[in-house]
Amino acid sequence: MAEDLQARGAGGGLRVETEPSMKNITQKVVPVLNGRLDITVNIAGKGKPLLYLHSAGGYYWDDFLDSLADHYTVYAPHFPGTAPGRPNDIDLVDNLWDVVLAYDDLLDGLGLDKVNLVGHSFGGLLAAELAAQRRQSIDKLVLIAPIGLWREDAPYTCASWCALGPDEIMEVLFHDPAHPRVVRRMTPPAGEEAAALWQVHFIWTLGCTAKVIWPIPDKGLKKRIHRVTAPSLVVWGENDKLIPPVYAQEFGRALPGSEVFMLPACGHEPPLEQMERLRDKVTGFLGA
């Protein structure tokens, strides 16, 4: 009898549309995995290449990316299945290893020998994995509140975000849900249809990203992270209620020589809640 329950789905919503930007964002579709999968990459800016891997909430061109594009050529791919119009691409990757190899191929497809690599949350896990796999191509590594390690005293699971209702998402994700950048990101677009599709995209994106990390994102990074050779910066919001900030130290320990940087008055979304401080720290760390 509960079967019609399951047709009802998760609530909540993160903004899908890109914010108005001064930058000219172009898109490039890059075949990977021997042509089985196409990855859509958003590209903007000038300077040395920087690969940015988005969180489980999906690709979103925010002020942080916009500011990085002042200094670097930013490449921001959509995770498979989350690019507009190609939801079933998620069927073409089965596990985390497939995804790491897809991004490894992506660097070749983009012709990038050396990149700075920045990942946020879910994208932080992917960035750490890629940095462990493709050592020679990663110049510097920035992990913003990455998932992927596990402590018994600080458990989190995919349910920690996938099981949240709309109000809980605001409460758990942000230190200040009223922050203007948060409000802009979390307000559905005008119009019933557009708002519904925005919600569909958000739920689907969570579903796609969850595929390779369900039910607990501890998928063995601890056995591979020692391979990372790139100088690394780990950034965490001091008030992160989703992934406990104690993991900042955990990643710091796992990445010898890395720098750990804590952001005050900040939850799990530093690019929204502490954009300026984050930008200054990251650009300072990466250098020109």
């Binding site: 509960a2 329950l5 399951q6 047709a7 009802r8 789905g9 998760a10 609530g11 909540g12 995919c158 349910a159 996938c162 099981a163 949240l164 209702g165 739920i203 689907w204 994106t205 969570l206 579903g207 796609c208 969850a210 595929k211």
Partner: peptide, 8 residues
């Protein structure tokens, strides 16, 4: 409701 059908 979001508990019934996880995303995906």
């Amino acid at each position: 409701e979001q508990l019934l059908a996880p995303p995906g």
